[in-house]
Design a protein around this nucleic acid. Structure first.
Lengths: 123, 123, 123, 123
DNA sequence: GTGGTCTAGACCACT
DNA sequence: GTGGTCTAGACCACG
């Protein structure tokens, strides 16, 4: 977890995306218990308030739920996860295609570029 | 030009990307005169200072230059544009691939999705 | 810090030179924390935005860096400082020599004048 | 006459200094008639209004005077020129020494640098 | 009318 | 309380 403090995007929104990806990819399994806000904040080197805000947002989205006094958990609603996964993919694909088309690239060119960069892209 | 005022990204940075795309796609031609700061600000429904900031940054990047009292123009340096184009494409492709790989998608799956959404994408 | 509001030079550029000199002379030490934008603006009797602009420029030049929410600091990159120092000296020496030569003074005369004024100059 | 349109200084103030130097160095002789505002503006590639403003300022300073219907002339008051010359030199020497001392340079070092740059400085 | 600078004052993300 | 962004509105140099 390394945040880009110089980025245009706010930290908590970067954290949200990080958790989203971990959940949608299955790295964080449905029903799994999250570490405490304080612990997560420490792992992420951010202020607990910032982590808190990110987690609240994830709850609002429905990927995480709170069991009072017991902690926070990844949702067990598999279709919610599947939905989120599709929405996430769709949103970013469309954003990406919009940008590439704005550059004047056609489908074949876009795919060529993906082939080209796919290999180099390891980190 | 419609900005997402709710977005995480600052307005001026959204404006910068908008102009970048217009220039890199050839919609704004090298040497073309831009409307005045005030005019552009009005079109974009933002404060002139905000527009000015975006344009200054585009100038710093080298995509735009100013002729005192005369207006702003798209750079005529074609290689600067070509460079910016490549950097822009590379950055967004890599960001995109990182996200898709984090979702657990492999190259074939990513390309499938692109095929799928490419057609629908007339926003 | 006293700015010449009547001067031809913009305030923020006078402020930039002021900080440059403080840094290059060692009055502000590498790594030292600057006062807050608001505080510096108040000390300098300028608007915080004006001070911010000057500091942003110093950051772009590389003499200062920002730690989000924590404050601004003098760069710790000693070679950046040394470079800036040489550039600053060279620029002002050449400007100065150009003016003196335009007055028709030769090297000996220029040095004589420097000897003469060097002592008096305790402003 | 080449103005730095990117400079912090306004054009008319650059023009003023240019005339000052021409007069103080004797390139423009006392009593000499200046070309018309329009002509000078054209030579300098600036707007007549800008040239006009520079000349008015030179008049205010006393280096130039106007003979109505007849044109503008360099002052014939030799002591005024001599004074201006001394003031100009003094002002710029002191500014220069202040900057160099702020850099932490002592007299010997300053003179060394002048020796060093004096030769290179031919244009 | 054009870009550039400055002020005053508000709101936000983060510690 | 810190830096960053945004707005509204003024004034200046230049053409």
């Amino acid at each position: 977890m390394a945040w880009d403090f110089e980025s245009d995007r706010s930290i908590y929104s970067q954290i949200i995306e990080h958790f989203e990806l971990s959940i949608l990819s299955g790295e964080l399994l449905p029903g799994a218990k999250l570490d405490s806000v304080r612990e997560l904040a420490s792992q992420a080197s951010v202020n607990p308030n910032t982590m808190q805000r990110a987690l609240s947002e994830l709850e609002r989205i429905g990927l995480v739920y709170t069991q009072r006094t017991n902690g926070r958990f990844i949702t067990q609603d598999l279709s919610a996860i599947e939905n989120a996964r599709n929405n996430f993919a769709k949103k970013h694909i469309i954003d990406f295609l919009n940008r590439m088309q704005s550059l004047g690239l056609n489908k074949a060119q876009i795919i060529d570029l993906i082939e080209k960069y796919y290999e180099e892209d390891l980190q």
